[in-house]
Design a binder for these strands. Structure first.
Lengths: 214, 214
DNA sequence: GTCAACCATTTTGTATACAAGAGATCAGCC
DNA sequence: GGCTGATCTCTTGTATACAAAATGGTTGAC
């Protein structure tokens, strides 16, 4: 396979997310270089970038391996994500303008459409847009960046979560409540709802653990 | 100047924090290479790492410049930092063990000593240890990492803040209350106190703005 | 038979040479 | 005289060659 239109970094990242590279697997620089038809230099740069966002682990003089996050680690990441999203929701409730609200409502509608046609992949995509609309409505560009970065890092696990039975319908119903709270300007309610929406707790914790074990 | 014992990345980072490289200044790869007596390759790696943590901005094919954060941007960063630290405090209140509490109390004492001798630099140092003790007591390694990363990014601005008159005494008194809440296991109180401790609000906002203008 | 030390091989880190794109300058045209 | 376009230079991005370090195997001794 040779390099496509996307950047090398995205190429390797995709390989990790799709399971082409297994967690714990050693990433050999020359192998990657030949595989993507480039030299070691851009491969190293891509690996460093992936290391910076935590997708792979780079140990000096000892190479790079795909990060294998244990269940408790993933749980912690969702815990932090929940708090950041809750914060974004609280800010959005206070600061949103008409344009923000329109984006959020539009995204909600697309989520509903995807759910109605039982299209998990489509819902996954629309769900992302919905959450991004909230980040944007927080009017804190830094918070938005942080949320996007962490969201990206959690992407593979999030995808697994939606596969759980009924999760899509639950998620959609929660979205509705969240939008309501934001529209009403109820910051604390938006914070509370988003925290619970993201956090992995109760039954969902078990679901996550078992999905990681496969 | 030639490279010292520290890594090249720390070297350049230090140059930015100390003002050796001004915000907005262009960082030429060959200049840095000759300055530190290495080739362009390690310089590029160091720049990429600094770009990943947001200290510099890298635009493809257009080089790297030292990030210049406007006041509102810095405000947003403190806003997020406050929320993360508040979260760490809340978790610490619930999860801390004897060893955690001992570390926190020891750090608090060192803060008191530094404040007693009116040593701002020393207080700055001890303050960092105090906050790190709380991160650690949260028993969430991911949250701890996120806090450390953001703390590092905010380091230059934090330093400016302590210069404000009476801030050290205020900070110390707040530390006492925070420790009390954590020791009592009052998560919500710890969250509330830490959020206010970090956040830049009221008079402190003006202080920050003016310190950025110098 | 097992353990340890040394050497070879593999792999990362660095330097330098080359290619390609972006910005500046100068010239020609309107 | 101002604006637009082409060329030229300077800088970034990539490839390859070289150096240094870590790992693994092999051999020798106990």
């Amino acid at each position: 396979m040779t390099a496509t239109s996307k950047t090398l970094r995205d190429e390797i990242e995709n390989g990790i997310v799709t399971g082409d590279f297994q967690p714990g697997e050693r990433l050999d620089e020359v192998q990657l270089a030949t595989r993507y038809g480039v030299s070691r230099t851009p491969v190293r740069e891509a690996l460093m970038q992936l290391g910076a966002i935590g997708l792979i682990e780079i140990r000096p003089r000892r190479g790079a391996v795909v990060a294998e996050h244990g269940p408790e680690r993933v749980f912690e990441m969702f815990e932090v994500m929940a708090e950041l999203e809750a914060m974004a929701g609280a800010l959005a409730a206070r600061r949103h303008n008409e344009a923000d609200m329109a984006s959020i409502l539009a995204a909600l509608e697309q989520c509903q459409n995807a759910a109605a046609s039982d299209d998990t992949d489509q819902y996954y995509y629309e769900n992302e847009i919905f959450h991004r609309a909230i980040y944007s409505a927080s009017h804190s560009s830094f918070l938005e960046e942080q949320c996007l970065a962490l969201h990206r890092r959690l992407r593979p696990y999030r995808r697994l979560q939606l596969r759980v039975r009924n999760r899509m319908k639950m998620s959609l119903s929660e979205h509705g409540d969240i939008v309501e709270a934001i529209a009403a300007g109820d910051a604390e309610q938006a914070r509370f709802l988003l925290r619970n929406h993201i956090a992995v707790q109760g039954d969902r914790f078990g679901d996550l653990i078992s999905s990681l074990k496969t």
